[in-house]
Simulated scan of single mutants.
Amino acid sequence: MEPGVLLETRKLSKEFPITKGAWGKQVGAVKAVSNVDLTIKHGQSVGLVGESGCGKSTLGRTILRAYEPTSGEILYRRPNGEIVDLAPLSDKQLKPYRRDIRMVFQDPFSSLNPRMTLADIIGEPLRVNKVLPEAAVEGRVVELLRKVGLRPEYLHRYPNAFSGGERQRVGLARALALDPRVVVADEAVSALDVSVRAQILNLMKDLQEEEDLTYLFISHDLGMVEYMADEVVVMYVGHIVESGPTEEMYDRPLHPYTEALLSAVPNPDPNAADQRERIVLKGEVADPTDVPSGCPFRTRCAYVQERCAAEVPALREVSSGRRVACHFAEELELRGLSELGAA
C-alpha cells in the first residue's frame, strides 16, 4: 500500500449463489462485485456512485465484512502502520477491526431498534466491545448526543419520538461510539426530506474534521457526492468504470456512463431547470447474473463499437489520478456538468 492509504481493495469480488431444487444445487451466481480495485486515503471522502443494482451497497458491506468476499483482498492499515488483509479473517479475528470501520445505514426508521432507548442504542457498541466500565457508558452516550446536535435529556426516549433527521443523527452517534477511523455511509441521507439533507451532510463534514474520519460515501445522487467527496468512483454492474478527483470528473467525464449520470444532476438554478440536457440511457441496468460479453455497459452505450463486445476494457490510468474502463476514452468528447447545463 502507498503511504497515506488507509484502506484498499484488490480484485475484490462478491457473488451470491443461485440454487435450485431440494438439494440446493447451484445453477448460477449473482456477480454483485467483480474484481474491484479501490483505494481510500486517510482523511479522504470517496463517493461511490451508480444506479440502483450496480453493487454499491454490496461493495460497502463486503469491505465491512458484513458479507464474506468471494475472492480478493481488503487491506487495512492499522494505527501502528501494520497492514492487515481483512478478507480471510474469522468473526473472532475481525472483532478489533470492527471498532475501526463502522457503518451508517440508509433508513433511519428501520436501522434503529424501536424497543431500545437512545441510551441502549448508542451504548450497545460500548458494552459489547467492553471499552468502558458500565458506570461510564451513560456519560459517553450523553457526549455523543451533544456531538451530533441532540439534547442529553433525549437519553431515555425511544426512536419513535424523533423525526427522520434526528434518527439519522442517532445513527451517526452510534457509528462514532467506538472512535472509528473509517465510516461507510450507505445512502445516509436519501431517505430524508430534502430540507434536512443539507443539515446531515454539514454535520458529517464537521464530524469528519473534528474526529479525523475517513468516509466511503455511497449514493446515487451525484449532486450530494459533489459536495461531500474528494474523489468519485463510478460503478456499473459490479465493475468500476471510472474514478478520479471530483472536480476533474464533473468537469470532464471519461466514460459514457458517467456523462449520463451527470446529466441527471438537478440544476440548482430554478430559472434554468429546463436547460439541463438529459441523456436517457436505453434499456435497464444489465443483469448481474448474465453480464454482457466485453464491456458490461455496451448494451446501453451510444458510442458502442465492435471491439466493445469482444474485449473487456481494463480499468487503466489515463492521467494522474484518473482511471477509466473504456476502449475509446481518449477519443470521445464527453460533456461535463457545466456543458450539460448550458442552454
Results as ranks from 00 to 15, higher is better:
62 T>A: 01
210 E>A: 15
309 A>H: 10
45 S>L: 12
138 E>C: 03
252 R>L: 15
155 L>V: 13
16 F>L: 11
133 P>N: 15
322 R>A: 04
214 T>E: 06
293 S>R: 12
285 V>C: 07
107 D>W: 07
276 R>S: 07
266 P>T: 05
305 Q>Y: 03
210 E>V: 15
158 Y>T: 09
21 G>D: 04
283 G>S: 08
47 G>E: 02
128 V>W: 00
150 L>M: 15
164 G>Q: 01
269 D>N: 15
305 Q>T: 14
195 S>I: 05
51 E>I: 05
41 K>C: 12
143 E>L: 03
238 G>A: 11
283 G>Y: 10
251 D>R: 14
132 L>T: 02
126 L>S: 03
222 L>R: 05
200 I>G: 12
144 L>H: 01
270 P>R: 13
63 I>F: 00
116 M>N: 03
203 L>D: 06
298 R>P: 06
237 V>T: 13
231 E>M: 08
4 G>V: 08
337 L>G: 03
255 H>V: 00
340 L>N: 02
204 M>R: 10
195 S>Q: 09
178 L>K: 01
269 D>W: 07
126 L>C: 02
69 P>F: 00
7 L>V: 13
127 R>P: 03
162 F>Q: 06
51 E>F: 01
52 S>M: 07
78 R>N: 15
83 I>A: 05
129 N>V: 02
318 V>K: 11
189 V>F: 06
210 E>K: 15
71 S>W: 07
211 E>G: 02
225 V>T: 05
275 Q>I: 05
125 P>F: 06
108 P>K: 12
325 A>R: 01
253 P>R: 00
273 A>Y: 11
168 Q>F: 01
222 L>E: 08
105 F>Y: 15
241 V>M: 13
267 N>M: 05
9 T>N: 13
206 D>P: 05
139 G>S: 09
146 R>H: 13
182 V>H: 07
104 V>R: 09
298 R>H: 15
155 L>C: 11
235 M>Q: 14
201 L>F: 10
205 K>C: 09
186 D>H: 10
309 A>P: 03
160 N>S: 14
226 E>M: 10
195 S>K: 08
301 C>R: 02
297 F>T: 01
101 I>H: 12
201 L>S: 08
168 Q>G: 06
213 L>C: 08
114 P>Q: 04
296 P>L: 03
148 V>S: 04
309 A>G: 14
24 G>Y: 01
94 L>F: 02
275 Q>N: 13
6 L>W: 11
118 L>Q: 08
207 L>D: 10
41 K>W: 11
73 E>K: 14
165 G>R: 10
56 K>W: 00
111 S>N: 07
26 Q>V: 15
330 E>C: 06
240 I>K: 14
202 N>A: 11
28 G>N: 05
83 I>G: 03
245 P>V: 00
135 A>P: 04
30 V>L: 12
159 P>T: 04
174 R>K: 12
221 D>T: 00
37 D>K: 11
194 V>H: 09
60 G>M: 05
119 A>E: 14
